[in-house]
Nucleic acid binder design. Structure first.
Lengths: 207, 207
DNA sequence: TAGATTGTTAATCGATTAACAATC
DNA sequence: TAGATTGTTAATCGATTAACAATC
């Protein structure tokens, strides 16, 4: 049950287990690792190892209790006080992320959105008000913001990142196409769409 | 120069080299792997290995010709006839992807966008017209579409994916949160934002 | 020449998969 | 009991890093 550190590769698979388990009909009360592996395209041993890191385990010949597994996964992701997050860069991408990402399911609360464009500042995106990016430092500093989402143009990204980390952010979700420099204790998670296009493009050429 | 297969991990770094090299002032005519590694936070040996896969190499004591390197990288990504691509699901995310991703820099041409929502069908997103998703199969089948971008809700994603692969698509860029089942020869590239949130959330909890 | 830098071969590391023992 | 299934320990695999030879 719940080991100290769960490897990144496992963490990325956990939401898949959760969404698959939730998609099962209610009468499926137990499920085997083999069945899950089959459905999700993973190796069965991998499934057992992954599940072992959040659940109290299954029973031989029976499998895992689906309800308990769902509970364990949701508790793992949602547990603790929710972390404040801000998003910077409210172009189409920032707008889409604010509206469509399930931040709350992972214990995040988007407290505000920021942009440099006067035409956008003051508008709303769902529940969230868009503030001037010049207020970013003061806002984050005062509000205990732990996660910053960067959806600005590449040339603004490093500046925004510095402001976020200076004001105490501990993790950055980076949608810009550049590599950000951060203090050692800050986690950068790159969501580089350009890199993905590179892989897809190369794959098609190699056919 | 240009080996047969370039590993995925290398491919994902190549765009970073390109954007960094392009950001250099014009008078920087040569650059060492060490300098690039320092700037991008990679290991210097990794940089040399990566660059070896697309360039004709550098010179000891001098480094790499920046202009030649930029040329080689751009040629690698852009080479060949451009691949037709479609995007399905024109909610905020599909809309943002269509407008902000540099498809053309990687040899892709978005030929059309699709949605199931009558309110959206017929509108435009930049240059692209939004068509009814019911026309997806016929359109792709006739148009030789090679890449499908899926930005629909999770519950529509597998159906859309089937339609795309049935009509001849060879690669899928999947923004939905589910695992898609595809024929063996089709490449799935998951861009699962939910998985990223899981990693970020777990990291902050483990502090 | 000397030393900076490249490029290659070997070692390490982490993640995945295989083999197998434990158990209901 | 027999066999399905879990969970663990060992082997494999790919990617990264270290060591070192080559070269300008």
């Amino acid at each position: 049950m719940s080991k100290q550190f769960i490897p990144k590769s496992t963490l990325q698979r956990l939401p898949h287990y959760l969404s698959y388990l939730k998609s099962l009909p209610a009468h499926v009360s137990t499920i085997s690792a083999t069945a899950i592996a089959e459905e999700l395209g993973y190796h069965q041993v991998q499934v057992r190892k992954d599940l072992a890191s959040v659940s109290s385990g299954g029973r031989p010949k029976v499998g895992y209790q689906t309800a308990a597994l769902i509970y364990d996964l949701q508790r793992y992701f949602g547990r603790g006080i929710s972390d404040n997050a801000v998003i910077v860069g409210m172009g189409p991408l920032g707008y889409a992320l604010t509206l469509t990402c399930e931040f709350s399911a992972f214990g995040f609360r988007i407290v505000s959105a920021f942009d440099f464009d006067e035409k956008v500042i003051g508008r709303r995106c769902g529940e969230i008000e868009i503030l001037s990016a010049h207020r970013l430092y003061d806002f984050c500093n005062a509000g205990g913001v732990r996660l910053g989402v960067i959806a600005t143009h590449a040339d603004l990204a490093q500046d925004v990142c510095d402001t976020l980390t200076d004001s105490g952010a501990l993790a950055i979700w980076n949608f810009s196409s550049i590599r950000l420099k951060v203090p050692q204790d800050v986690l950068i998670f790159d969501q580089n769409l350009t890199a993905s296009l590179a892989v897809l493009s190369a794959h098609l050429k190699q056919l």
